[in-house]
Design a protein around this nucleic acid. Structure first.
Lengths: 347, 347
DNA sequence: CAAACAAAGGAAAACGTTTACCTACAGTTT
DNA sequence: AAACTGTAGGTAAACGTTTTCCTTTGTTTG
């Protein structure tokens, strides 16, 4: 007797498997003393319903799949943690897949999830194109895109208002007297970086300023990328008193590069990051950044996915947009207050 | 026709389901032209085997479960990433559970995994006691403990040599002239912190020095905890020229606290962390730390778990110990080289 | 007291695979 | 030509549930 099945329980309790099933699931009519007896046998034998059999007959696996590029990055780890939490609350388990920023592994992951019978999938897609994703949405009722917006499947998109966030960040700098602003952007393909540059440009224009393209440097969205981009920026001789970074990691890299060149933050150069990772609070000086409510978004995405998978969606064309807020810390200097010294970079 | 089954394929291809199954799994005798025909039908219909049905009949789910306290922490995210990678290589998927440092959620997670039919489980357990885990190992053939050692189930333990790592760290400090060493430890229950304190004590003794218990402060294993512990240490008026921190986060917290008190790192106080998180390389000054090969360990743990689950284990009493190496960076000052200034904390 | 009904619980089909066993047929050996 | 052998491929049982009918039994109602 390796594993206890419902039949074993039924036999010992002297009832049919139907009754045991009813007791386990707490539905259908079962007499009180009968229920008690079955309960007891279940305990004694340590019966545990077989999930595969349940999934087979119910035609649904109580799992939600999450596909992100790289779980070891705090941002995606946090995303996964939020998703796991909501999934668990709803009685689902979480299957995790890393896509490693490759289209093929992204597709493989989706395929493997579908094969498992997983109808709920949260996808953070960097590289698949819109058409592919729209096609996928046709087939997978519970597909939800996180951090991406595709108009045709707006109701499946849980995303972040990059435009207004970067406008907000830029405005904050301008209001503090910064007019020469550099942007350290990412080489990601998914539109986010581009949106943010646009946001910065728009905010500057609203104040009669302009974003010089020479001050926009792209690199990989991590610490090294930030360092590299900043080196490039310094080397180019551009004049700037503030940097808007694509994310906190790049901002940290920028701080390192500036530090190596003896440029002080925020005294000589101010910096704003994105994401509000724990590291932003921890670094010295602590990083002013735009909050990215990724955990909350992930929770929401799972909830949405479960609803969509149940096909209860009155096909609203509503989309799901999360907005940012600025976390004020120590890396932005207000040039309009103290004018003690006026050193800045370049020129 | 909502979903394509093996029967549909069989009907269209004019063969039995057995043949389709043989084609899909590439085993058993199937004629060449017959195989081709079936392949084609599978393509056309977009047939995808039902994982639940397969798991049911094969009595195994191709999944490995990973249970960690908090996925949003880089350490555990990295662990999960390593596990996912190996699982995928072996054709398995990964189920993630957060235990949130609670015994009950830990047990719930295990229960849910077992119910799914998951025989491979990687558990990072903080709070369950040895007896519980030993009992669990009896029932779950593929249970592997990561970052924990229990002699009775040594063959299921993938762990880290805390003792020698902390000895190594301490020796490194002593060799650089540090004699007054403080330890910022964690309040975790799982034995790691205690082992590390012992390691430090032993290393000091080997050099004829002693670890003053007043210089060992415990707190939570994160940035705030490190800050708090350091504040306490400073307030206590103890004299110290170096700190061994329980992990990089606590080390960063310590650096912040020291910074706030105008104490320079490494000039006045040296620090060694543990884990070698990306943040250790990124902070200023960059943190000297003991490497913790957690990703590699996680990969290994999954491999081991799969072997154990298959019960191929010739019951060796081998255990699986990973060792550390010191990553030299900028937070340790060599007191024996330059003696320009001699300020230190306390006294 | 008969008729109607409700409640408890059983029998069996269904879910989609895999696989042990069997059949049919073609080719080989005597 | 008969007997044998090997192989492609079919049949059907099995995996462990859930759920739709039923049947049985006891209770209410006119």
């Amino acid at each position: 007797m390796t594993v206890v099945t419902i039949k074993d329980v039924a036999k010992v309790a002297g009832v049919s498997t139907a009754t045991v099933s009813r007791v386990v699931n707490g539905q259908g009519k079962v007499g009180e003393q009968c229920r008690k007896r079955v309960q007891k046998v279940i305990e004694q034998l340590g019966y545990r319903p077989n999930g595969s059999a349940q999934a087979l007959v119910r035609r649904e696996l109580k799992m939600v799949g999450v596909i992100t590029p790289k779980l070891s990055m705090t941002f995606f780890g946090t995303l996964a943690a939020g998703a796991e939490e909501m999934a668990r609350e709803q009685g689902y388990s979480l299957i995790m897949c890393n896509s490693l920023y490759e289209t093929q592994s992204e597709l493989d992951a989706i395929d493997s999830l579908r094969r498992q019978g997983c109808q709920s999938i949260i996808l953070h897609s960097e590289y698949s194109d819109d058409a592919q994703l729209i096609a996928l949405a046709e087939e997978i009722s519970g597909l939800v895109l996180i951090n991406r917006f595709i108009p045709q499947i707006a109701q499946r998109c849980v995303w972040f208002d990059n435009l207004s966030a970067s406008q907000q960040a830029t405005r904050y700098l301008v209001e503090r007297g910064h007019t020469e602003i550099a942007v350290i952007s990412s080489i990601y393909q998914n539109g986010d970086p581009a949106d943010r540059v646009v946001g910065t440009r728009q905010a500057l224009q609203q104040h009669g300023l302009e974003l010089n393209s020479n001050k926009v440097i792209e690199s990989t969205a991590n610490i090294d990328g930030g360092k590299e981009a900043t080196e490039q920026l310094i080397a180019s001789g551009q004049h700037f008193t503030a940097i808007v970074a694509y994310n906190d990691l790049m901002a940290i890299g920028a701080m390192q590069a500036l530090h190596q060149h003896g440029i002080r933050v925020p005294h000589d150069v101010s910096i704003i990051g994105f994401d509000n990772l724990p590291i932003a609070r921890a670094c010295i000086p602590s990083l002013t950044t735009m909050n990215y409510p990724v955990e909350e978004m992930a929770r929401y995405a799972v909830e949405l996915s479960l609803i969509l998978a149940r096909k209860e969606h009155p096909h609203t064309k509503q989309t799901h947009l999360f907005i940012s807020e600025l976390i004020e810390r120590e890396t932005v200097r207000n040039l309009r207050v103290v004018q003690s010294e006026d050193k800045s970079v370049g020129e």
